[in-house]
């Protein structure tokens, strides 16, 4: 009985914490991002490889012109289903700063597998100057760094609308249903058919938003598949072990005269 009470208490605490978080966002009257049925959700969730590769294309062609991704390297592309040769070829599309030559003058070279994705701007000042004062955040961790994670990122991509008539927008700002305060410096990044998918998938805004979010969630959680896989093994092991412990307890205590 007391044990049950403990469990109920713990449940109550977590419920309170969860609803508490929701109330904060509700107070600012943003629409709640609709929950999606992601391939990486659930105990056995994995990343949809095709979506990841399409998502990389969206990132590369669209997002990367303003957003850096400094924790992801070209070698990591092998994890989303590219061959090492393909990843190398993708890297070599970029020029990066090389070692100084023998006279100490700066050089450039083709990017290699070991290089991180090149940043679009030299420094934050340059980034702000090019984006009417706003700093496009690094995208490596973006789905972890926002409430509602991937659901929010996807919703943000598709959440652009005309501002309500009674709302005064700041200069250069765009109206988004899901952005806190509704005024976002980033213009609607996706438009119908702006990316040509190698696998022939139709590049609707919806489709691109889903693909790029899948890619971004992988970038933030590259260990997710391994984590789920080990997790299952660990859970099965621990549950069996705990079962054995309970049996041992019964056997040992049977010796006592009650």
């Amino acid at each position: 009985m007391t044990k049950l009470r403990g469990i109920l208490t713990a449940a109550a605490v977590s419920l309170i914490l969860a609803t508490g978080a929701n109330q904060v966002s509700a107070a600012e009257a943003e629409a709640l991002p609709p929950a999606q049925d992601w391939s990486f959700n659930g105990l056995f969730g994995t990343f949809d490889r095709a979506a990841l590769q399409r998502g990389y294309k969206v990132y590369k062609d669209v997002c990367a012109s303003c957003h850096a991704m400094k924790y992801v390297a070209f070698r990591n592309l092998v994890d989303i289903g590219f061959t090492e040769g393909e990843a190398k070829a993708l890297a070599e599309e970029y020029e990066v700063a090389g070692e100084p030559d023998e006279f100490g003058d700066p050089t450039t070279r083709k990017a290699a597998l070991s290089d991180i994705f090149p940043a679009p701007y030299q420094n934050p000042q340059a980034a702000r100057a090019a984006n009417s004062g706003a700093l496009p955040p690094d995208l490596s961790l973006i789905t972890k760094a926002r409430e509602h994670g991937p659901d929010y990122i996807r919703a943000l991509m598709v959440g652009y609308e005309d501002a309500p008539a009674d709302m005064t927008m700041g200069p250069g700002m765009n109206y988004n249903v899901y952005f806190p305060g509704h005024q976002v410096a980033m213009p609607a990044p996706l438009s119908e058919g702006m990316v040509e998918y190698a696998d022939g998938t139709e590049a609707s805004v919806e489709q691109m938003a889903e693909d790029v979010t899948t890619f971004l969630h992988w970038a933030a959680n590259p260990e997710l598949e391994r984590r789920h896989q080990i997790g299952f093994q660990v859970m099965v092991y621990l549950i069996l072990l705990t079962g054995l412990f309970l049996i041992v307890k019964q056997r040992v205590w049977r010796k006592l005269d009650h």
Partner: peptide, 15 residues
């Protein structure tokens, strides 16, 4: 023996 199962349960929650 009695407390091993609680340790097991804690590990399950943690895992």
């Amino acid at each position: 023996s009695k407390y091993m199962s609680v340790i097991g349960l804690s590990f399950i929650v943690l895992a």
